[in-house]
Design a binder for these strands. Structure first.
Length: 574
DNA sequence: GCCGTTTTCGGCCCGACTGTTTTCAGTCG
């Protein structure tokens, strides 16, 4: 149920993979990959563009533009079909295993006829990889480890994908006559970092029209179960969606029940029992008489139990009930509190959009300030130089004042090297408004080395924010093994903020680390690390994660007014 | 296949690491 841009990007990426797997021209594969990325990050809906419009997208030339049009018109690209037919789909699946690229996938297929992850596991267990050229013992271990990592994600999908799907369904169902309310519940409403299945609730007197609608939506691939109260479907993307229709009078009780978490619900029910009440998805009832007390809204139910309304992002049984009873719930930071993004890229390095487009999009979001932080030279592939950075600064300064009161900050994302050193010397760093510093390589250093490395970065007076601190990629790469309590302590001591990277694949720091870091007295920055204008709205996933870490706007430096932020970024400069 | 041009070809992000080799291919950021 991807939007047209994502759908087209996926088709182009598939072809790029196929070209690589079949040993085709590596530059051609690369060209398709670049085009896929550009289409995915393009702000305009590709299905509304003509040939010239498509060719206006960077890295999309005549040939690809024509194929995109063909795809949008017919749902397929004739030129891709032959290559597609020559490689079983499962071979491409092998590429999702970290450390396994197209060359190895091809060797496995050609030599052993392996064409799925399961077949690969089987081949390894039967020691069929032994003796295969280029596959030693370590390779085997790495593949097994990679598969384990994949399996751990266990069919759960990224928050952003679930949110896209859910919002489309909610919009479609809300338009049906008789719909009094429609909302997502479950782990998506709680903004967990991955989502198993999507729970959608509707309040309506008659359930049938909604059961029928969800079963026949254009993006519904399969009806798994259909009953009077609940229908489960699988979308074209393979996502399971459970729809439940509630009587409007039981809306609050149903929303509470289906939002969870299970552990939170158990705690709430325990309180109900102590009040001589019982709570179900139908309402709050007196135990003795069975009479209903309240059920219409969540506020009423919590209120009757002596609790304030508890934000869904806190409902994990991490002390929110006790805090609520003691009137001690945090006033959580909200998306509206965020005054600016402090970690973003442009096409000067690996971003997709020019500086001017990114700044214009930021202004459109109503920010009070906005930082551009392209990569520094130590990430060699980005080819950054002092001259380029300074030229960008001039361009940025020239935009200052063009967007009302939005102030522009010129920053950089430094690379934290193996010993904790960063790209540029102090005198050059002093010229930036802020420096984010992040780990991009050498993930497998020892715990001591990694810890020392991050602590050293914190101690650099010019480093204001540690970017994506654990470097994990959800379902792809585990967090680095550092002593993060030592890092958090160093952040608190040196006045260095920890990033909450809002990219749905990262969400780094995650909620648990935020809770730990917070106890050290650390400040945070919720940033998107946007590489295109379409990434700027990812902020909400970062804010959701911050909320799950119990953060208030005082904990988040980019919820502060500019003056206070500047003092934090550059204490030396006053 | 895209792009830019000192345009219609020749380059394409560069370097490091890992594991497999014994000089290099594959993968990653």
């Amino acid at each position: 149920m991807a939007r047209p841009n994502e759908e087209v990007a996926a088709v182009l990426q598939e072809y790029a993979d196929l070209v690589a797997i079949t040993g085709g021209d590596a530059f051609k594969a690369r060209a398709y990959e670049k085009a896929a990325r550009a289409v995915g990050g393009h702000p305009a809906d590709v299905s509304t563009l003509d040939l010239d419009g498509l060719r206006g997208i960077p890295n999309v030339g005549r040939s690809i533009a024509e194929k995109v049009i063909e795809y949008l018109r017919t749902g397929r690209v004739a030129a891709f079909e032959e290559t597609r037919a020559s490689v079983p789909p499962g071979v491409r699946e092998l590429l999702t295993i970290p450390t396994l690229g197209p060359r190895k996938a091809l060797a496995l297929y050609e030599e052993l006829r392996v064409s799925s992850v399961d077949e690969l596991l089987d081949a390894i267990h039967r020691e069929r990889l032994r003796g295969l050229k280029g596959f030693g013992e370590k390779t085997e271990q790495n593949i097994l480890h990679g598969i384990e990592l994949l399996r751990k994600a266990g069919g759960r999908i990224l928050l952003s994908a679930a949110a896209d799907a859910a919002e489309r369904i909610v919009a479609d169902l809300a338009g049906i006559e008789g719909c009094e309310d429609c909302a997502v519940a479950g782990s998506l409403r709680r903004m967990r970092e991955t989502i198993g299945d999507v729970d959608v609730l509707v309040a309506a007197a008659r359930a049938e029209p909604f059961m029928e609608a969800v079963s026949t939506l254009p993006y519904t691939a399969e009806v798994i179960a259909r009953g009077p109260k609940k229908t489960s479907v699988r979308t074209l993307d393979g996502l399971q969606v459970d729809l439940r229709v509630l009587p409007p009078d039981a809306w609050g009780a149903g929303l509470l029940y289906f939002t969870g978490s299970k552990a939170h619900n158990i705690r709430v029910r325990e309180i109900a029992v102590r009040h001589g009440l019982k709570l179900s998805e139908y309402g709050l009832f007196r135990v003795k008489s069975g009479r209903k007390v309240v059920s219409r809204t969540e506020e009423e139910i919590y209120g009757r139990l002596g609790l304030p309304w508890i934000p869904p992002t806190l409902r994990e049984d991490r002390g929110e009930i006790a805090a609520g009873l003691a009137d001690g719930l945090p006033e959580l930071v909200t998306e509206d509190d965020i005054r600016g993004d402090l970690h973003t890229h442009t096409d000067l390095t690996d971003g997709l959009a020019p500086l001017e487009d990114m700044v214009a999009a930021a202004a459109g979001r109503g920010y009070a300030y906005y930082a551009v932080t392209d990569h520094a030279p130590d990430l060699a592939m980005q080819r950054m130089t002092r001259e380029k950075a300074l030229a960008q600064r001039d361009r940025l300064r020239a935009l200052e004042g063009k967007y009302g009161r939005m102030r522009l900050l010129h920053g950089t994302e430094l690379n934290i090297g193996p010993d904790g050193e960063v790209d540029w010397p102090d005198d050059f760093l002093a010229g930036f408004d802020l420096c984010v510093a992040s780990v991009h390589s050498h993930f497998k250093q020892s715990r001591e080395e990694l810890t020392r490395r991050l602590v050293r970065a914190c101690e650099n007076p010019y480093v204001a924010i540690i970017g994506h601190p654990t470097t994990r990629l959800i379902g792809k790469r585990p967090p680095i093994d550092a002593d993060f309590d030592a890092v958090f302590a160093a952040c608190a001591r040196t006045g260095t903020a920890l990033e909450i990277n809002a990219h749905p694949e990262r969400l780094d720091l995650g909620d648990e680390e935020i809770l730990r870091a917070r106890r050290h007295g650390v400040k945070f920055a919720v940033n998107t690390d946007a590489h295109s204008v379409t990434h700027l709205p990812y902020l909400r996933f970062g804010v959701g994660t911050a909320q799950r870490g119990w953060l208030t706007k005082d904990d988040v430096i980019n919820a502060w007014p500019l003056q206070r932020l500047r003092r934090f970024l550059r204490p030396a400069a006053g």
